[in-house]
């Protein structure tokens, strides 16, 4: 699949898809989207990159091992539940704060941390699966 057109288009495609995935993730709370969808989009992006440039290139670009990303995501999601314990509410209860930021109010919450955790788990796991299958060195 290492055709010229594909190899030329792939980096832009990957970059666009990654940006789109983050966008989908962050708007997920109010519009369609969210961690699962965003994560899958990002995983597809890496899969495409891997098909175009080979698995080592993706691994280099990712810097971390995909499973490590996945593990960090799970950790973040679980940790997002912990602050609720401090406030004496059940585990994983969403907590919100809206600090003013350059005159703009931004909603920050543990729920967003949780959703980012979901995103990272999905990205990490599926990228890892896809890369493992693309990697033909073992055959």
């Amino acid at each position: 699949m290492q055709t010229l057109i594909f190899r030329t288009a792939a980096p832009y495609l990957t970059g666009l898809m990654l940006m789109f995935s983050v966008f989908v993730l962050l708007r997920g709370h109010n519009e369609p989207g969210g961690g699962f969808t965003g994560g899958l989009i990002a995983a597809s992006a890496f899969a495409i990159h891997g098909i175009a440039f080979g698995v080592p290139a993706v691994r280099r670009a990712l810097y971390f091992h995909p499973m490590a990303i996945s593990g960090f995501g799970l950790f973040a999601a679980a940790a997002a539940g912990l602050p609720s314990l401090l406030f004496g509410v059940p585990f994983l209860t969403g907590l919100w704060m809206s600090p003013a930021f350059f005159g703009m109010s931004i909603d920050l919450s543990t729920v967003i941390v949780f959703d980012i955790g979901v995103y990272l788990v999905v990205v990490g796991s599926f990228t890892s699966i896809a890369l493992a299958l693309e990697d033909r060195e073992h055959d």
Binding site: G34, S70, L92
Partner: peptide, 26 residues
Amino acid sequence: HGRNVVNVIIVDFRGLDTLGEIAVVM
């Protein structure tokens, strides 16, 4: 504080389920 009800259910109301699920994914 979410307008997408589906996502709110996933990450907030039923967050523990989702936590379990992403563990399965991993």
